[in-house]
Amino acid sequence: MKEKQMAVCYDSQACIKCFACVVNCSVENRARLQRERGTGVEKTMMEKLPHLNYLTIEKSESGVFPDVKSVAALKHCQHCEYPKCMDICPAEAISKEDTGAVLINRDKCVGCQSCIDACPYDVPVFDRETGKTYKCIMCNDRLEAGLPTACAEACPSVAIFCGTASDVRAEAKERAERYEKVFGKKFIVYGAEPVNSHVGSLSYMTIAAEENADPYMLPENPKSGVSIARNVIKIGGAAAIGAAAAGIAVHVSHWKKHKEDSVYHHKDEE
């Protein structure tokens, strides 16, 4: 499994914000519709299909003129080591592949949107028309065919790159170190190491200045309240049910022991 492990890295410092990746991702998904669902090319190019924009742009501002930080960040699935979406999916439609990609199986998805509730990064998007939920698939089909992800292929800069997980991590680390030297501030490779025990490491990592973690949506301690609560309730609930059953069992034996001298033991009526 380890040999096939791939990764993608988005370098926010080398990014020139041309959004070729965003457009190409959408185009590649339309191509998938053509290939796999037999939809006509023209039709796929006419429809909005916003749920197939697996990369979306989130712009944010902080500060006050002229000391303002303005960021147009790319939002995408992080492909967590411990995908919370996978854990919660009642249809078992989500899997973590050998490549590292976390996939929603479109045929299995029932559109319950539990993954949306569970994702610590608020990534999956539900489409009313198809009644299913979608998110970045790390171009798993392309990776398995020896091609780069659509976003990496599109990047005219050298900001999104993909390859084996170890290669990507090494390149990312080298870049982060260089940026630290040049700009004199801390740069992180978000996801190269486990972010926390909840999500683990990420197969789609991000290079960013630590001070920009917020606008680039790179929380230090991503947690899914829903996932945690759900697990607690399931375990607690199972325990409570078990305790109830055990209690009942005890009570039954208690009845059996004392039923003779019970007013409720209507022996003659049985």
């Binding site: 309240g225 829903v226 759900r230 399931k234 609930g237 039923k259 409720y264």
Partner: peptide, 28 residues
């Protein structure tokens, strides 16, 4: 969502007791 699940667990616990006592001779 969390409430729905929690409510379900509580309901199961309730039902275990409820059904048990409903069929128990004490409540014939």
């Amino acid at each position: 969502r969390v409430a729905h699940l929690a409510g379900f667990m509580a309901m199961v616990v309730f039902l275990i007791f409820h059904v048990y006592f409903a069929i128990h001779p004490v409540n014939r």
